[in-house]
Design a protein around this nucleic acid. Structure first.
Length: 291
DNA sequence: AGCACGCTCCGGGCGC
DNA sequence: TGCGCCCGGAGCGTG
């Protein structure tokens, strides 16, 4: 599952491979056509497929940027800026190849949904096994309201203050801390894996109510989130199930995780417990995480 | 207006 | 070997 560090890795991989290149055309999968014909917005969101196809033609990839768990592919034509927004969902992956046969794993080869032919000869390929990802062509980010409501980047100076201010709102103060730190309007880019790790690092129980946590502890938790996100970026992200770096590589952060997907606590060996919070499995150590 | 809630998207991988 | 079920980011429609 790609979270902020995994998306950061994908963006860093993609930059040297495609920045400055021109998209000649895009080909979409039969699945995408069939789903759209049935009224769904599978992968390509916010517009008709024909419009998407004609829009990206002859666009220059001006820059690639990560924002929260999104990839912003900044495009340009005749000096005018546009942006192709991508979210990897659960199983999205990018490849830059001469031929799709170079994609080693069959499950990614089998679920290619968008193939951008670059003028330089390579193919920029978007594969998505479960089709939870998205490609959205926009003139500006503001065109899609949810993108304007995202919390600041966790590494920004004011991100901690923003987090504290959000926690104080009635909407959040009665929720559990786990749910709130995974909310993109509170903290950007923190999903289940890193939320689980940061709560373990600060001995906080995921079910604890936000309003019952002292401010200093909230600050400590925020710092733990930033630390684990950085550690993961430095280790190429966590390769769990279907996350791959560009062209099918793997990260190594999964080997450094202390609580996510662990059956026993690495510091006291107590069996971990799992609870479902807002529909997501939350693992914690009942002995170490008592706060 | 703004919020809570439920629904939807989907196939790999697991348990039986 | 095969079948049925579980998992989950995020947007959206409903009340």
């Amino acid at each position: 599952m790609p979270e902020l560090p995994e998306v950061e890795g994908v963006v860093n991989d993609l930059k040297p491979l495609v920045e400055g290149k021109i998209i000649q055309s895009v080909t979409l999968s039969d699945t995408v056509y069939t789903s759209h014909a049935a009224g769904k917005q599978t992968i390509v969101k916010g517009g008709a497929l024909e419009w998407f196809e004609t829009s990206v033609q002859q666009m220059t990839i001006a820059a690639i940027e990560r924002r929260a768990k999104y990839i912003f592919i900044h495009l340009q034509k005749d000096e005018e800026p546009f942006v192709l927004v991508n979210h990897l969902g659960m199983t999205g992956a990018w490849f830059v190849v001469q031929n799709v046969a170079e994609i080693a794993e069959e499950k990614f080869r089998k679920h290619i949904h968008a193939t951008f032919a670059l003028a330089s000869g390579e193919l920029l390929v978007y594969s998505d096994i479960r089709r939870f990802g998205e490609l959205r062509f926009l003139r500006t980010i503001e065109e899609h309201a949810p993108l304007t409501k995202m919390a600041p980047e966790p590494f920004d100076d004011y991100a901690c203050e923003f987090f504290l201010a959000q926690c104080a709102k009635p909407k959040y103060e009665n929720k559990t801390i786990k749910e709130v730190i995974m909310d993109g309007q509170v903290i950007s880019g923190c999903g289940n894996i890193y939320a689980t790790e940061a709560l373990f690092a600060t001995k906080l129980r995921p079910t604890k109510k936000v309003k019952a946590i002292p401010k200093a502890k909230k600050v400590e938790l925020f710092q733990a989130i930033v630390n684990v996100l950085r550690e993961s970026i430095d280790n190429g992200g966590s390769t769990i199930s279907d996350y791959r770096t560009v062209n099918g590589g793997a990260g190594s952060m999964q080997n450094r995780l202390k609580m996510y997907s662990h059956k026993s606590c690495p510091s006291c060996q107590t069996a971990t417990l799992s609870v479902v919070i807002a529909g997501r499995t939350s693992t914690y150590c009942p002995s170490c995480q008592k706060e």
